[in-house]
Nucleic acid binder design. Structure first.
Lengths: 137, 137
DNA sequence: TCTTGACCTAAAGTCGACTTGAAGTTGCAG
DNA sequence: CTGCAACTTCAAGTCGACTTTAGGTCAAGA
């Protein structure tokens, strides 16, 4: 498969695929002339990368988790990352419940509703957490 | 309270507080000479902003949700955002379960474990989702 | 053979969310 | 009254994750 085909099937632009290859997240199986050739397995890898990015992992995280140089699996790292996700799931749930409450609540401002404030349990205590993301659907 | 106090109490650098004020996410209650003065309510607002950022909302999202110019609450927007979070919670849960499975699984590579692949239900179907984030604990 | 569209590389640009730097001002402890 | 730490502004820089641009290369169909 050449890059255009992978782009079509994965929904990612070719530029992104080249960028990922450069970062070592995917590998082409060789070249046909100048052109990279990929085999089908790359589609699974790309789907995994996309999911990982969507849940907030950086591309470097993805590399560490799924393509260690020595081919070994760092099981402890995976457990740690799973634990991070648990924390994140808790935050998301809190936020969701807060939003749903605020949508129903009659208080004139979110900050005047003690319920809202309690649900969000304001006070993050997490300096230097990380960057951002877009939840989407 | 001047900005240093808010910085200390919120854990955010003063530069960030100025930046947020400039973006309209928080407001100072006035000035003492040149110096911004804040009242305590700002701490709640900052905690809310931090949580929102941590769950993946952009600063613009936060503005839309919590400080609409007209003082009105867009309840439908809040419900929509809550629904986004539900989608995201599902993805996080999927990813977490995949990671936990991979941490136990004996397959030599994640991609050779049909269980792992099934758990992640590879195939994202979400082009142009968003950027990134760091879940952290 | 010629054309053309899909591919190639390297470098620069973009975007959000801040951070850093330079240069200036000022409240207040001593 | 002085000194200076803590503030001020405005502009430019950084970082991750890409995207865009500029200038080629080349396989294959007409």
């Amino acid at each position: 498969m050449d890059i255009g085909e992978v782009a079509k099937l994965s929904g990612l632009p070719a530029s992104t695929l080249r960028f990922y290859e450069q970062k070592g997240l995917i590998r082409s199986s060789g070249r046909h002339g100048l052109r990279r050739q990929f085999n089908e397995q790359v589609l699974q890898q790309l789907a995994l990368i996309s999911l990982a990015c969507q849940v907030g992992f950086s591309l470097d995280d993805v590399g560490q988790m799924f393509q260690r140089a020595d081919g070994e699996i760092d099981r402890q790292l995976l457990r740690d990352k799973a634990a991070e996700l648990n924390g994140q799931i808790r935050r998301l749930t809190r936020m969701r419940d807060g939003l749903l409450h605020a949508a129903e609540c009659q208080a004139p401002s979110h900050f005047e509703c003690p319920n809202f404030l309690r649900i969000l349990k304001l006070a993050g205590r997490r300096p230097r957490a990380g960057k951002n993301s877009a939840p989407s659907t």
